[in-house]
Structures are given as structure tokens and as C-alpha cells.
Design a protein around this nucleic acid. Structure first.
Lengths: 206, 206
DNA sequence: GTGGTGTTTGACATATATGTCAGATTTGAT
DNA sequence: ATCAAATCTGACATATATGTCAAACACCAC
């Protein structure tokens, strides 16, 4: 046979598609682009992933799967809450420095079709991770170690501060930096401010 | 003649194009869409705005022009800094509640072509407004009424917190709200948190 | 009405996208 | 070596996008 064994090319296609989707966006990346970059014929793409939509699902899964398990593992640890948050931030930032267009890609998909996105996410234990974080927070709040803050406020603060610099990277570099390479440094500086804001929001001491 | 007098249809086209660009994004809105919505023939669009690109410029100008003068006016007032910020936030939020897709549109354009965007913005006193805010901040900081914080950090905090809820509106509504109509309420609740974060960042008392 | 200006349109040229399919090619089991 | 299944490809069908143009149309001055 060989059918089920040749996931090598399939993987190569997914990696290439990920890079292109994430660089240029879903709509502006064509199946031809992907095929040309991989160095295969376009119909071959359709052979592996019948439609562009299934191509997307494969790519999105690959992205989420590369982050979610690490986050879940960290949030389960038995160390102070803010230390866990700090480590999760590291995890995100490393991934985003590697691939600064992921946030844009996710945001684009949130706009294009939330339900499709959530359905895809659901298939990879997204809800378990979400639940772990939620419960972790609630127990900290009930124990009085953290202030009581609505979950959606926390969500907006965390992801707003984390994702926005990457969404506006071009603008930030143009307005505030001399050259592109300084951006990574800015992100690590920025991480401290994210932690500061979260502490102000959550920690009882002040 | 009549050429220069018929800015009525031209305005109607711009309004329609703005709505569509802002709802569906630039790439996913076709000239045909716009023409059909206005109720005219597509070549007529090309008669008024030779290319889709000039169409964009007209739309973007219209959006920025509806905000920038108000912001400039407010920032010039002689009232406490945080009060000015609060009023600017109101201005933004009212505009965004009216038209929740503006942030997405701007972000998309920041990614697509920053320089094009900045060039268009430059034509409408964007730099003056930017300078006014910058100087206002510096004088407050030097007078010791505000903590000294790098401009880019302030930029990221302000716009990250302000824009992200609108960029992730679909997700927020799906994850945290019962129905779409609650979103406006959430935004006004969120405004207080934005102010809180900015105070923590800027104000000397704490 | 005639003519000129500004405005609108139908038809065309061109480009690029997705998806299908029959047939060629490779591959592995026998 | 042969056969069948898996893999790949050239060619096709279809859809939709932008932009151009010559010709039609509307309107006002004269």
C-alpha cells in the first residue's frame, strides 16, 4: 500500500501551508502558492486535502497542538499563580517570535468563522485546558490569594496585551524602532508590563 | 459641467464602500459588491475612483477624518490628563460601537501595507495630532504629574486594551455572553478597566 | 434643436482562483 | 514479471476579480 505511510509529504505540505497562511493570511494564499512552494503539482494538494477548507483545518490543528499541551502542563504545576502565568507568557512569546503572524492568523479566523474555529479547537482538548485555567483561577480567588475579577476581563487583559504588539508589529516597528531586529527585545520588555498589569489587576497586595 | 457638483453619489459610494470594507475586509469586498449595493454599474465605480486602491484611500480618509479632529480637540483642552484620556476613550468607543469592524479593518491594513496607510494618514494631519499628544505627555511627565513611561509602552497599552475586545468580538460573545446585545455593555465596563490600567501605569499616587 | 460636457453602461480583455477527472506513473506484494 | 493500489499530473470546467473602451445617454448653454 503506502497510502497511510506517506505522511512525510503530508507533513511537509502542512508546514509549508502553515508558513504561507500565517505570513499572508488564509484568503491571500492560494492552493497554487502552496503547491509551488512545496514543489508539487496543485492537484496533488487536492489529493491530500480535498478542499482548501480541509487544508486550513490541518494547519490550524497543527498550530494549536504546538501550544495547548505546554500551556496545560504549566498551569497544572503547583507553584505560585503569577509564576505560572509568567511561564505561559514565555511559552507564547517564544512561539510568536518564531512566527509573528500567528496572532494575525488567529484573529482573522475569529472574524471569518468563530464557530468553525471553536469546533476545530474543541477536537484538541481546548475545553479541558480552558477548564483547568478557570478552576485554577477560581480556587485562588476563593482562597483570597487573588482578587475576584470577572473571567472575561482577565481574558481581555491577558490576550489584548499579549497579542496586540504582534498584530501591530509593522506599525510599532515603523513608528518606534530603528530596525526590525529590535522588535524581539521590545517583546521581552513588554512581557514585564503585561505581568505588571496582571499583578495590578489580580494581586491582593497591590 | 456638473462634474464637480455631483459629490452626492460619490459620498454615497464612499459610505457604502466603508460599510462593506469594514464588515468584510478589503480583500473580500469586490468592486462588484460595492456597485451592486449602491445600485449602480461597476464601471461607474471606476469612473469615480479609477482603481480599487483609490477607493480604499477615499474610505480610509473618511474613517480617520471622522475621529482625528475630535481627538485633537480633546487633547488640547486644559483639564487633567486622565480626564482627557477618558473623553478620548468615549470618542473611540462610540465610534466603534457604531461600527465594530473598524479596528479589524485598520489592523488588516497595518499588515497589508503600513507605509501606504501612514502615507494616507499623513495627508490628514495625523502627525500633528501625534505630536500634540506626545508633547502633552512629555510636559506632564517632566512636571512630575505623570510617571515617566516610554511612548511605545503607552501606545501598546492604550491601543491593545482599546482595540482587542473589538478584534475578538466574535470570540468574546461566543465564550462569555448570552447574546450579542450585551457586548456594548461589556465595552463600557471594559472602559473602566482601561482607565485603571492607564492610571496604574501613569499616575504617581498609585 | 444643436453641440459639448459630464456621466453611465454593455461588452470585452485579462488574470487568477478552486475543484474534477481520466489517464499516466510509481510502488509494493505476490 | 505482473497486477493492483496508491500517487501524481495535464487538461478541463467553472467562477469571479479588475480594469478599459467605445458607444449611449442626460443635461445645460446657446
Amino acid at each position: 500500500m503506502g497510502a497511510l505511510e506517506n505522511n512525510e509529504l503530508e507533513q511537509q505540505i502542512i508546514e509549508t501551508a502553515k508558513r504561507l497562511f500565517v505570513e499572508k493570511g488564509f484568503v491571500e494564499t492560494s492552493m497554487s502558492d502552496i503547491a509551488a512552494t512545496v514543489g508539487i503539482n496543485r492537484p496533488t494538494l487536492h489529493y491530500y486535502f480535498r478542499t482548501k477548507d480541509r487544508m486550513f483545518q490541518a494547519v490550524f490543528s497543527s498550530i494549536v497542538m504546538s501550544l495547548l499541551p505546554r500551556v496545560r502542563e504549566i498551569m497544572k504545576r503547583d507553584i505560585p499563580f503569577m509564576e505560572r502565568v509568567s511561564m505561559v507568557l514565555d511559552e507564547y512569546l517564544v512561539r510568536f517570535i518564531e512566527n509573528p503572524y500567528i496572532p494575525k492568523f488567529i484573529c482573522e479566523e475569529v472574524q471569518r468563522d468563530v464557530n468553525h474555529l471553536l469546533a476545530t479547537a474543541k477536537e484538541m482538548q481546548f475545553e479541558e485546558t480552558f477548564a483547568i485555567i478557570k478552576e485554577g483561577l477560581q480556587s485562588e480567588m476563593e482562597a483570597g490569594r487573588l482578587k475576584t475579577v470577572p473571567l472575561h476581563i482577565l481574558f481581555l487583559t491577558f490576550y489584548g496585551l499579549l497579542l496586540f504588539p504582534l498584530l501591530s508589529k509593522n506599525l510599532v516597528v515603523t513608528l518606534f524602532l530603528k530596525e526590525d531586529s529590535e522588535f524581539e527585545l521590545l517583546l521581552w520588555e513588554w512581557k514585564q508590563y503585561i505581568l505588571l498589569h496582571l499583578k495590578n489587576l489580580l494581586c491582593v497586595d497591590g
